[in-house]
Computed example of a mutant assay.
Amino acid sequence: MTVGQLLRRWRQTRRLSQLELAIQAEVSTRHLSFVETGRAAPSREMVLHLAEHLDVPLRDRNELLLAAGYAPAYPAEALDSPRLTAVRAAIRQILAGHEPYPAVVVDRAWRLVDANSSVAVLTEGVAPELLAPPMNVLRVTLHPDGMAPRVANLPEWRAHLLERLRRQLVTGDTELAALYEELRGYPGGQAGPPSPGDFAVPLRLRLRERELAFFSTTATFGTPLDVTVAELAIESFFPADDETRKFLQSL
């Protein structure tokens, strides 16, 4: 695809008209139209400027630049590279500080990057082959040989995870699309209405003779300039009731 076609796709994905984007980016509607149709070649600065206003992920901004004939602007360092030492240290500090509650770090495709020891509470009983690297957190959660048989509210939790993954498909990532179709094929039932009193969709997990309840938060690195760092997400699980909190603190 040309850079103009890619920009138009992102504009339509963000549900913006040419006029709305032109006003936000402070460019003329005529010039934006010419860029999208290929009648004008955008500068490197214009590509990045429009990508910023369209909230395009860094990986896809590099794709826009390449389509326009420019070199990528954002590196994609391996997480174990010396340049990302501070990032690794921050991740370990966050994970350790969240004990005794579970927390994981995943990449854009939901592959496990790191986790704290409390995640063992979630993965107890999961088939070993699902835990082998590269471990996919969504597959482990929803697979019939994974956590799914122990998730007391599987239809609701499954619907929540599938919706989060579906929203990522706007990037056109074929790997994510294949994962989405795979997970949709797993059994899980239809989600019902939210339970009265819940402020978020909880994860209700059976563990031996008890049922644990969690809610989760997602954290990302602010203002990243590296593709790898931009695509990391820290998923932290908190106890949703006193029984779960007391049990985890007793471990």
Rank of each mutant, 00 (worst) to 15 (best):
A96L: 15
V201P: 10
T29K: 10
R9Q: 15
E181A: 11
W10I: 08
L122Q: 04
L176E: 01
N153H: 10
T37V: 13
A178V: 05
L161S: 04
G38D: 15
R208H: 14
A219W: 15
D145I: 03
P193M: 02
Q93I: 10
S33K: 12
A41N: 13
P187R: 07
T13K: 03
Q93E: 15
R208A: 08
V35L: 14
E182K: 05
V56A: 10
P133Q: 06
T223D: 14
L248K: 00
L16W: 01
A68E: 03
R88D: 09
V201Q: 05
V229L: 06
T13P: 02
D60Y: 14
V87P: 04
P187S: 04
P133L: 12
L203R: 01
A68T: 02
L95R: 10
A71D: 14
L48E: 14
F237W: 13
P72Y: 10
E124N: 02
Q168I: 03
R11A: 12
M147K: 04
R15W: 04
S28W: 12
D173S: 07
V170C: 02
V104P: 01
E211L: 11
R184M: 09
P239C: 02
V47P: 08
A200Q: 10
Q168A: 07
Y70W: 12
D241I: 00
L32Q: 05
Q18N: 09
V151M: 11
H98V: 09
M1P: 07
H160E: 11
R61S: 08
P224K: 05
P196W: 14
Q93T: 15
L154A: 06
P187G: 11
P194S: 02
L6H: 07
V113M: 06
L179A: 00
